[in-house]
């Protein structure tokens, strides 16, 4: 499994409590629209991601982050800085 696949898999696990409709998660899944998650829940989910990876993901970044694949890139970018 590549690092990106590993990150994707971890994000999917962290997203599960928010995936109340239990839809199948793919890299192109839109975190807010496809999972019908409101903006506050998206921020709460991102907090879980921050704590898991011990990184900060500033809220400013989220406006450009729609899909799980987008978030994989953000996480790996932040990890590369640590």
């Amino acid at each position: 499994m590549s690092a990106s696949e590993d990150t994707f898999s971890t994000l999917c696990q962290l997203l599960e409590p928010f995936n109340t409709a239990k839809i199948g998660l793919k890299p192109e899944t839109d975190i807010s629209a496809d999972l019908n998650i409101d903006s506050v829940s998206v921020m709460d989910f991102v907090m879980e991601v921050e704590d898991h990876f011990n990184i900060d993901i500033p809220l400013n970044v989220l406006s450009e982050t729609r899909s799980i694949a987008d978030l994989v890139k953000v996480v790996e970018g932040r990890l590369a800085k640590v």
Partner: peptide, 13 residues
Amino acid sequence: GCTLSGAKLVRFR
């Protein structure tokens, strides 16, 4: 207000 500032925004619990 935070968004309008253009600052980096970090949310804590």
